[in-house]
């Protein structure tokens, strides 16, 4: 049972790391601010969620897992809100989204 938990948390951690790095690469390569905003907020939610899930599996039902759940819930609320605020400020700053003609 413990081996199964370790295996699952190992897979979660690695896939979370992969998504975080994918988001980081997307942050660099995308042509326009709004596409980068999408790349960054995707990695914020999915990559972070998987990594924290992997950590949660490691600690099982303990106080650490409760803190991890709190961090996860807060990040799931704050990350999209920050992305929305960023997009709104950028649009007000007369930043024209990149449209391929």
């Amino acid at each position: 049972m413990q081996l199964l938990l370790d295996a699952i948390s190992w897979i979660c951690l690695l896939s979370g790391g992969f998504f975080v790095v994918a988001g980081g690469i997307g942050l660099l390569r995308f042509p326009d601010f709004f596409t980068r905003l999408h790349a960054a907020s995707v990695t914020d939610t999915l990559g972070t969620g998987l990594i924290l899930l992997g950590l949660m599996l490691q600690s099982g039902f303990s106080q650490a897992s409760v803190k991890l759940i709190l961090i996860l819930v807060f990040l799931f609320f704050s990350s999209p809100t920050a992305a929305h605020a960023l997009a709104k400020a950028a649009l007000h700053g007369k930043l024209v989204p990149f449209v391929k003609r």
């Binding site: 988001g23 942050l27 601010f33 980068r36 914020d44 990594i51 924290l52 700053g93 930043l95």
Partner: peptide, 23 residues
């Protein structure tokens, strides 16, 4: 190029710091 890219990068960096501290 734009200032919003920098704010986005700093925000993303902060979230990664949260991850690093937890890990």
């Amino acid at each position: 190029p734009t200032v919003y890219d920098r704010i986005l990068a700093v925000n993303s960096f902060g979230t990664k710091t949260v991850l690093i501290i937890a890990l």
